[in-house]
Design a protein around this nucleic acid. Structure first.
Lengths: 94, 94
DNA sequence: CCACTAATTAGCGAACACGCTAATTAGTCG
DNA sequence: CGACTAATTAGCGTGTTCGCTAATTAGTGG
């Protein structure tokens, strides 16, 4: 999943989907790369569980999976907490 | 920087450094891979700004850069719309 | 059924990531 | 200085990523 976030285009896709679901074509139109390339990015994000697809007629709509992104952020925060004080709780005050 | 987090060994290094600074050798001893390989991981983390090195005699001590990790987590949260006050993801009440 | 659009899969080349061993730099101490 | 330890850089093989074009699947409508 970290790998999925490691590409600027994929992060941009997630950001677009943050405003709401969007079709594959509409997303692809906002990027310079070809559609097959974008489709590959969609697959990476889908495999990582960051987005989900739903078919609507001929188009496919992608939707953001916010909970997985939350987990990612929590995991990163967890990297710095272990050891100094055992901070396993979710309610982290910083 | 996302790339730096995309390797398990590197995340493990960050976790170790979360308990406090540690020498390159001591860190390397906890992994199965060779020391040059570990040195490569250190470089990736250093280039990403996630750790900093300080020489102490013949050994080199690495220290975690917690602020950069915080930025990373914040950036991920920002991908879902946290940055602007867009809620709608979980029925968040103002 | 055939044409058309939306999106994906297939296949390919260039570039990069990751691990190794061997050689090199940096510093300590007899 | 010379030997020793700590750590890095150099060089190489292998596998993966990323982009492309071409071909294929899925669905709509004449």
């Amino acid at each position: 999943m970290y790998h999925a976030l490691a590409h600027p285009a994929r992060r941009q896709i997630l950001k677009l989907l943050g405003s709401g679901p969007m079709s594959a074509g509409d997303i692809a139109d906002r990027f310079e790369v070809s559609k097959p390339t974008m489709s590959g990015h969609f697959n990476v994000l889908k495999d990582a569980g960051l987005i989900q697809a739903e078919r609507d007629g001929t188009t496919i709509r992608y939707r953001l999976n916010a909970s997985v992104l939350e987990e990612a952020a929590a995991a990163i925060l967890d990297l710095m907490g272990t050891g100094k004080g055992v901070r396993e709780q979710k309610g982290d005050e910083r």
